[in-house]
Deep mutational scan, measured.
Amino acid sequence: SPEEIKAKALDLLNKKLHRANKFGQDQADIDSLQRQINRVEKFGVDLNSKLAEELGLV
């Protein structure tokens, strides 16, 4: 269901964000992850996106 997909995506992105902060990645990478999280919260996951591929939806 779209809600489950959204939850999985947010979980994955939050893990990536945590790792980025923990290991001191570029601020641009961290900002990009934050924008992705905001986009998923607002609009859900686009099944044509790279994120959908990472989640194994495509």
Rank of each mutant, 00 (worst) to 15 (best):
S1G: 07
S1N: 11
P2K: 11
P2A: 13
E3H: 07
E4S: 09
E4P: 04
E4G: 09
I5P: 02
I5D: 04
K6C: 04
K6T: 07
K6L: 07
K6F: 03
A7L: 12
A7R: 13
A7C: 09
A7K: 15
K8T: 06
K8V: 07
K8P: 01
K8N: 04
A9S: 02
A9G: 04
A9V: 10
A9T: 03
L10E: 01
L10Q: 02
L10I: 09
L10H: 01
L10D: 00
L10A: 01
D11C: 14
D11F: 11
D11H: 12
D11Y: 10
D11N: 12
L12Q: 03
L12H: 08
L13N: 00
L13F: 00
L13E: 00
N14L: 14
N14D: 04
K15F: 05
K15I: 06
K15D: 08
K15V: 05
K16S: 04
K16Y: 06
K16C: 10
K16L: 14
L17T: 00
L17K: 03
L17C: 03
L17Y: 04
H18G: 07
H18F: 12
H18D: 15
R19A: 14
R19H: 14
R19E: 14
R19S: 11
R19Y: 15
R19T: 11
R19P: 01
R19M: 15
A20M: 12
A20Y: 11
A20S: 04
A20G: 03
A20I: 06
A20R: 00
N21Y: 14
K22F: 10
K22H: 11
K22W: 06
K22S: 10
K22V: 11
F23M: 13
F23G: 08
F23Q: 12
F23H: 11
G24K: 08
G24V: 05
G24S: 09
Q25I: 12
Q25G: 15
Q25M: 15
Q25F: 15
D26Y: 06
D26R: 07
Q27V: 07
Q27M: 09
A28Y: 10
A28W: 08
A28D: 11
A28G: 12
D29T: 15
I30C: 04
I30E: 03
I30W: 03
I30P: 01
D31L: 10
D31M: 08
S32Y: 15
L33A: 01
Q34T: 11
Q34P: 01
Q34S: 05
R35F: 10
R35Y: 11
Q36I: 13
Q36R: 03
I37H: 02
I37F: 04
I37E: 01
I37G: 00
N38I: 14
N38F: 09
N38R: 10
N38L: 13
R39S: 14
R39T: 13
R39M: 15
V40T: 04
V40P: 00
V40A: 02
E41C: 10
E41Q: 13
K42A: 06
K42I: 10
K42D: 05
K42G: 04
F43H: 10
F43K: 03
G44W: 02
G44F: 02
V45I: 13
V45H: 01
D46G: 06
D46T: 06
D46V: 05
D46I: 05
D46W: 06
L47I: 11
L47Q: 05
L47E: 05
L47P: 12
N48T: 12
N48A: 10
S49L: 02
S49D: 05
S49N: 03
S49M: 04
S49E: 04
S49W: 03
K50D: 09
K50H: 09
K50M: 09
L51A: 02
L51S: 02
L51I: 08
L51E: 03
L51H: 02
A52Y: 08
A52H: 03
A52R: 03
A52E: 02
A52G: 04
A52D: 02
E53R: 12
E53M: 14
E54Y: 09
E54M: 09
E54C: 07
L55P: 00
L55E: 01
L55C: 02
G56P: 01
G56M: 08
L57R: 03
L57H: 04
V58Q: 09
